[in-house]
Design a protein around this nucleic acid. Structure first.
Lengths: 129, 129
DNA sequence: CCTTGATGCAACCAATTGGTTGCTATACGA
DNA sequence: TCGTATAGCAACCAATTGGTTGCATCAAGG
């Protein structure tokens, strides 16, 4: 399902998950690389320079379109050209950055806490061990 | 295969691919979230708070360790605790950022090129609309 | 010594995935 | 009108994946 790219994304994590899944496959990355290098292309075009069938390409393009990384646009002769769209990747990138930062924060807090399991009270009235 | 984390990564793209693959799975993200929230844990610990078996967790941990997101450390009673490691995620994040930037550059160049197939001369002699 | 709890390994299973072939429909050109 | 080329759909297939059960092993504690 393609939600219009102008509306704010319903869930950053969902977008990020789709982008991760999309980018985890080498064939998908090849498709994206081709689109980045030569601009919009049809599934048939892509099948010409990749060692798999047009239908396999088409399936990948559906997945990429769902992730928002690519948008289909109807051409003149009922041909559908797919154009690259980098916005969701930047979203995923921000998500990754936030996640890494969050992890480091939490782990730092944990380590701080575990280093001082019984913080020394300011008064010297510790009444037991 | 665990290459020692002290050596420089053999290939950024390979690391990124593994991180993407790792982060594409919700169970794996749950494991990582748990490790971020409560610190290092064993596969058995994780199985206690997730609805799948310890062996399933263990398989995910192998994958996560391969991606470098987690490092196993041998504990006292032959127990193996897994500790979170955010470095490869930051690498993947940088990879994503570079990729997005590269795409935008190439697409901008393409669009520039296609917009001016015959560059307009500087004089105001545009002879048609 | 025997029980208990934790790890590791292997086999197995079902669902998903990446890919193919085959078919239909449609748009253009000779 | 017929031929060519492209897009879309469905069925099928093999490999991978996420998960399970079962078993052998090892470390402590009674």
């Amino acid at each position: 399902m393609h939600w219009p790219a102008t509306l704010p994304p319903p869930d950053i994590e969902a977008i990020a998950e789709q982008v991760f899944q999309a980018l985890a496959d080498p064939t998908r990355r090849a498709i994206l690389a081709r689109l980045a290098a030569q601009g919009p292309a049809t599934a048939t075009d892509l099948a010409d320079c990749l060692p798999i069938t047009r239908q396999a390409i088409a399936k990948h393009l559906v997945l990429l379109a769902d992730a928002g990384l690519v948008t289909p646009e109807l051409g003149e002769r009922r041909r559908v050209r797919y154009r690259l769209h980098s916005a969701p990747m930047q979203l995923a990138q921000q998500f990754l950055a936030a996640l890494a930062h969050d992890w480091d924060d939490r782990l730092q807090a944990l380590s701080d806490h575990l280093d001082r399991p019984a913080p020394v009270p300011r008064h010297n009235n510790q009444h037991s061990n």
